[in-house]
Structure formats: C-alpha cells, structure tokens
C-alpha cells in the first residue's frame, strides 16, 4: 500500500516535470513528435532507475562511511555519465534494435537534470533501496507520461493557425503550463 501511494504521488501529484520543474530542456526539446517522445521517455525511465539504484549504493557504501558526503554532486554526476556510456555500449552490442530506437537519446541523458535530480531527491528524502527503485521508476514514468501527452498536443497544434511569434517553443511552454494546471488538481493527495 505504501508503495502504491509512493507511485501515485510520484507520477501524478509531484510529477517530475510539471510540478518539480526537472528535465524541462528535453521536455520542450524532444516533444515535437510522439515517436521521439516515447523513445526519450523510455530512455529516461531506464537510466533514471539504474542511476538512482547505483547512486544509492555509492552513497551508502562509499560516501557515508568515509565522511565524504560533500562530494555527493561530483560523485553522482560521474556515476551517471559512466553509466550512460556503459548502457550505450551494452545496448549497441547486446540489443541492437533497442539501441537503434534509444541510442540517439542516451548521450542527452547525462545532462538531463531529471536523472541527477531523482537521485538527489531519493537521498534527501532518505529512502531505502527498494523505495528508491520504486520512486525513480514512477518518476521516470511520470516524465514519460508528460512528454507523450505534450507531444500529442504539439502534433495537433502544428496544424493550427497561430500567430507566428507564438509558434514553436512559446506555445509549447504555455501548453505545458495548462497541463501543469491540470496536474495541480492532484495537489495535497497522497502526500
């Protein structure tokens, strides 16, 4: 039951993009078509979950015992960068079809603040390992949901006649605002 609440809270109530402002660059940048959005979203779910689990172990077994907590930022970003590189190499060798669809998004993910953000949030909320995995999986799913919905909206907007100054990023941001307003209705639930 606790995990259920955790999942609902991470996807809807504290949606990583729409309520916590993380990962906005890829959110705006890769939401032009739903195919790209799904690829990027899945890559984030995958990497964020692995990164959160590994950084949790790094914090627990490396940084905390040796009193190196102040090196958290630098250690986490290096772990994530190495992990992304490793995942890329592994997918290329082992699962070429998956690499074909996710490969181009992987290098983007190192600087996706959602991934580092999720890892740090798990530390600040002092989650255990299982909670960390569940939370990061759900947060990634929240990112995927928001990205795919926005991509769907933008595909339709492309066909609409809007003032040229609003076309593209400004309108995408305003749409994101309206989506955020919808998700705002969940605020206070399951917290």
């Amino acid at each position: 039951m606790d995990y259920f609440v955790l999942v609902i809270a991470a996807i809807f109530v504290n949606n990583i993009v729409l309520a916590q402002y993380l990962g906005n660059c890829p959110f705006i940048g890769t939401s032009k078509s739903s195919g790209v959005a799904i690829g990027m979203g899945l890559a984030v779910v995958f990497v964020a979950t692995m990164a959160a689990a590994i950084t949790w172990c790094v914090q627990k077994f490396l940084l905390a015992p040796y009193d190196l907590a102040y090196l958290q930022t630098i250690a986490f970003i290096l772990v994530i960068a190495a992990l992304v590189q490793f995942v890329e190499m592994f997918l290329k060798k082992a699962v070429p079809p998956l690499y074909k669809s996710l490969g181009i998004f992987l290098p983007l993910i190192t600087t996706n603040c959602a991934v580092l953000g999720i890892a740090i949030i798990c530390q600040r909320k002092e989650y255990g390992l299982v909670e960390t995995v569940v939370f990061s999986l759900a947060s990634g799913a929240g990112f995927l949901l928001a990205l795919v919905v926005l991509a769907g909206i933008r595909e339709r907007l492309d066909l609409a006649r809007v003032p040229i100054s609003l076309k593209g990023t400004p309108l995408a941001l305003i749409m994101a605002g309206l989506m955020s307003l919808t998700f705002f209705a969940f605020k206070g639930m399951a917290s």
Binding site: Y21, I164, S165, L166, P170, L173, I174, G177, S180, F184
Partner: peptide, 22 residues
C-alpha cells in the same frame, strides 16, 4: 508563483521577444 504560472509566464515572455524581433 505556482508551477503553471512559471510555464505560462516564460512562454509569454518568449512570445514577446519573438514579437519584438518580428
């Protein structure tokens, strides 16, 4: 001051910048 306002506000500022350029 809530999340939706941030998105809409930034969107309108970007639109304003584009309108100025145009």
């Amino acid at each position: 001051v809530e999340a939706p306002g941030a998105f809409v506000c930034l969107g309108l500022i970007l639109a304003g910048m584009n309108a100025l350029t145009n």
